[in-house]
């Protein structure tokens, strides 16, 4: 059974048809061919598919595409301002937090949402924000550095 989804994705109005069983991740990747959001566990356990949905980070793999009707969504493709990277994107590159880069889009979305909530996150805030984002490459040290660097730059401390 297919029906039409009207949503605002990365500040653009999008209208496309989808099946009832389609996940939001499949809608983004396969229907809209926006491949930036990554598929991994497909069960809501790894965070690779994290997007910002009506202002909150969620796992798009366990969300119905149908729920996107009327929603406002930001994906990794919509975070930078033209050629100017978002502070979190820049910090991930600058600190060496991007190894294979596969968890990176989801990670960046979680961190961008965190820094929207909290200008100077504590270790506890960081754990809460990204415990659902698994990185298999870095052992997390450089990612923590990236989060602090981005926070400092956003609030003018660096």
């Amino acid at each position: 059974m297919s029906f039409t989804i009207n949503a605002t994705i990365n500040d653009k109005k999008v209208s496309a048809s989808t099946e009832a069983s389609t996940s939001l991740l499949e809608f983004l990747r396969d229907t809209l061919e926006m491949k930036g959001t990554k598929l991994c566990c497909n069960t809501g356990e790894c965070g690779a598919c994290t997007i910002i949905f009506n202002g909150k980070p969620i796992n798009s793999c366990v969300t119905l595409a149908a729920d996107a009707d009327g929603a406002t969504i930001t994906t990794i493709e919509g975070l930078a301002d033209g050629a100017n990277l978002h502070a979190v994107q820049q910090a991930f590159i600058d600190t060496g937090a991007v190894q294979c880069g596969y968890c990176t889009p989801g990670y960046i979305m979680s961190v961008a949402a965190l820094l929207d909530r909290t200008a100077k996150p504590t270790a506890e805030d960081i754990e809460e924000a990204v415990s659902g984002n698994i990185c298999r490459c870095t052992g997390y040290a450089k990612i923590v550095d990236a989060i602090h660097l981005a926070a400092d730059r956003l609030s003018g401390r660096a």
Binding site: G36, T75, I76, E77, A80, L85, I93, V98, T104, P105
Partner: peptide, 12 residues
């Protein structure tokens, strides 16, 4: 910064 970093952080 790693080569290929920008592509990876913008989802490209």
């Amino acid at each position: 910064a790693r080569i290929g970093g920008v592509e990876r952080v913008v989802g490209k």
